[in-house]
Structure formats: C-alpha cells, structure tokens
C-alpha cells in the first residue's frame, strides 16, 4: 500500500489529522517534554532554591547521590513500601472481588462502599486515619485494648517499625479498590461453562479457584500489578502527609527525598538528580507495561 500514490483526499485527511493533534502536541511539548529535558539539565547544576542561582557541576550530583547513604536508604524504603502495599492490595483486592462477585445482599451498595476509599482525596484519607491512629483518643487503640491485643496505647506513626507498617496498611486500604474493580470486571466475563465442567469433574470450590478462576485472571493481574507497582513506587501524598518521611527518615521514599532536597534543603540541582535516577528505575517497569499494552493492542 506504500507504493500507491496518495489521493488528494487522503492527503487532505492526513493534514486534518495533524491539525487535530496539534494542540495536544503543543501542550505536551510545553508542560512535559520541555520540563523533562530541563530536569536532566538541572541535575548537572548546583542550584540554591530561594535565589534559583546555580553553577555547573557536571556529574558531581550523581556521584554524591550514589555514594550517600540517603539514596540507598530511600530506595530500600521505597521497595519495602511498594512490595508490601502492592502485595496486600492484590490479595485483598482479589479476595474482595470474589466476594462481591457472589450474589450478596445489597451488592451495589457494598460495591460503592468498597470503591469509596479509592476516589476519596488522599488528604481526607490521611486526616481520617490520623484521627483513628490518635494515641490518646483514637478508636483503634481503644478497640485493640478492649480486644486484649495490646496492653498500652500504640504510637502508630511516630515509631519504627510501626510507622512503615501503618503507611503500608493505609496505602493498601486506599488503593485495593482499584484491584477489586478491575478483577470484578474480568470475573464477569469468565464463561459459566468452565465452572460447570470443573464441577462435573468433581472439583471443589478451592480447586475451581486454582484451576479455573486464577488462570483466567492471570492476564489482567499482570497488567494490574505492573500499573500499581508504577503508581505505588511514585506515591508521594500518602506517605508525605502521614509521616512526612519520619520518624527521622525511616519512611522516606525517593519522591519524598526529591521534595526534601528541593524545598527543605534548597538543593534544586541535587533534587533533580534524585528525580532523574528515580525515573530511570521506574523506566524498567514503564517499558514493560508499555510493551505489553502495545502487544495486546496489536492483537
């Protein structure tokens, strides 16, 4: 088809197509491509944030970053947070989706209630959880003490390892509904005939889950895991608002470190270097996801 000369109409259409995409391209260049390139450029300078004046330092920021403990500690926390919260999200999400797939009472109300944490602002979620976690008057300590699980009120956010565990749990609570909805949509397309066949073969509920449901869910789960891994890895609001990276820096992930370098330590260049390295790490996941989506699209 490439050899056929283009007709006038086709050429006209191609121009129209370009005109329609032009606003998108312009905005993309201005607010995404240009900042992305300047982020890399900035990372080669040492810039004092309040005056925005700086000098060329080349790769010194990167050298300092890789030899400083901050980066490695933040990366470690970042990975623990991502893996921890993602695992909980997947397990809770698949479990809840299986439950909501059954014909329970007031199913649509139950689904709305489950969905709500995902859409509620992180600020709201954090305020509510801070109140639940409150050491003196929080309901959580009260319930746990009444149930006899703990003898003394717990400091949920001010001590380690509690702080990291709390952050992971709140993250799971906030984001597992995403998994629920995505899995639920897939569950509804599994043909009943597959379950019938398994039942005739004498498979119990557990065997049916592992032999029928799970293989059918495999593809959607891979996509969900990649997407959520990317989003959890770059999460800023939830961790920043809950603990601010503390106590000391034990819940400080890479995005928080970028913010701290830029606006608390006033090292804009160094912060850019952190951001660029963080993006490089994420690039691995991003390329995996993009490649997969493209192959699904093409099929």
């Amino acid at each position: 088809m490439a050899t056929r000369p283009k007709t006038l109409l086709e050429r006209h259409y191609a121009l129209l197509g370009l005109a329609l995409i032009a606003p998108t391209v312009l905005v993309f260049c201005a607010v995404i491509v240009y900042p992305l390139i300047s982020a890399i450029y900035l990372s080669l300078f040492s810039i004092f944030t309040p005056t925005l004046e700086g000098e060329w330092v080349g790769l010194a920021n990167y050298r300092e970053l890789l030899t400083s403990g901050d980066f490695w500690s933040a990366l470690r926390v970042n990975l623990i947070w991502t893996i921890g919260t993602l695992t909980l999200q997947i397990v809770a999400g698949v479990g809840m989706a299986l439950i909501l797939h059954q014909n329970i009472w007031f199913r649509s109300l139950a689904r709305s209630l489950i969905l709500f944490p995902y859409f509620v602002s992180t600020v709201v979620a954090v305020l509510v959880w801070k109140w639940l976690f409150n050491d003196l008057y929080g309901i959580l300590n009260h319930l746990m003490m009444t149930a006899g699980i703990i003898d003394w009120p717990i400091d949920y956010l001010g001590m380690m390892p509690n702080a990291l565990i709390s952050v992971i749990l709140v993250g799971a609570w906030k984001y597992f509904p995403f998994v629920v909805i995505a899995v639920l949509a897939r569950l509804q397309t599994i043909p009943d005939a597959l379950y019938e066949a398994a039942r005739i073969d004498g498979a119990g509920p557990v065997a049916r889950f592992f032999d029928v449901t799970l293989p059918q869910l495999r593809d959607v789960l891979v996509v969900i895991i990649m997407l959520r891994a990317i989003w959890d890895f770059k999460e800023f609001d939830l961790i920043f608002l809950l603990t601010g990276g503390g106590p000391v820096n034990s819940t400080e992930t890479l995005p928080l470190l970028v913010y701290k370098e830029a606006f608390a330590l006033n090292q804009m260049g160094m912060a850019s270097a952190y951001a660029v390295v963080m993006m490089l790490i994420m690039l691995v996941f991003m390329i995996l996801y993009v490649r997969r989506t493209r192959s699904v699209d093409g099929a």
């Binding site: 607010v31 900042p35 992305l36 770059k234 993006m279 996941f285």
Partner: peptide, 19 residues
C-alpha cells in the same frame, strides 16, 4: 501518551516550578 501517563510528577515538578 502512555509513557507520560505513567511518569512521576516529582520529575516534572522542579522544572515546572522554575518555569
């Protein structure tokens, strides 16, 4: 488009702030 959809805000925020 898909790539930018996954991009962390934290990378863009410093140059955007300057801009």
């Amino acid at each position: 488009v898909l790539f930018t959809y996954l991009l962390p805000s934290v990378v863009l925020i410093l140059p955007l702030y300057l801009m």
